[in-house]
């Protein structure tokens, strides 16, 4: 399989997981770049120019709330998962688990 094709399929598979990761991670409020680095540390790579607009969209959808922290030298926008975001995260996680189970079953069925 060519590298481009592989990257395309991986990207397709991972699409949407960043949303779920953000909703879970932001149960503890944080600002964009700290979130990006902690996701990176957990093995979820996302570019800054993707993550920042995504956070703003999720806020617009009512899944995140935000607050500017001006106490420090640099103003930073802190995001936190809203109750609606929490609900969505629970639903998405359940679906993710269901898919994982199904895929494992399919993979094992192949072997037998």
């Amino acid at each position: 399989m060519s590298d481009d094709l592989l990257q395309g399929h991986l990207q397709e598979l991972r699409r949407g997981t960043v949303v779920l990761a953000c909703l879970c991670r932001l149960r503890h409020p944080d600002y964009g770049y700290a979130l990006l680095e902690s996701l990176e540390a957990s093995g979820i790579h996302v570019d800054a120019n993707t993550l920042y607009p995504l956070l703003r969209r999720l806020e617009k959808q009512g899944l995140l709330t935000s607050e500017w922290n001006t106490a420090e030298s640099r103003p930073r926008k802190f995001y936190r998962t809203s109750p609606a975001g929490d609900d969505l995260a629970a639903t998405l996680t359940a679906d993710w688990d269901r898919l994982t189970t199904s895929l494992h079953r399919l993979a094992e069925g192949d072997r037998s």
Binding site: G32, Y33, W68, R74, P75, R76, K77
Partner: peptide, 14 residues
């Protein structure tokens, strides 16, 4: 404006 500025400055700091 402040959102983009924050993003840029954090990236530069790194």
């Amino acid at each position: 404006e402040p959102e983009i500025r924050e993003m840029i400055e954090e990236s530069i700091d790194v």
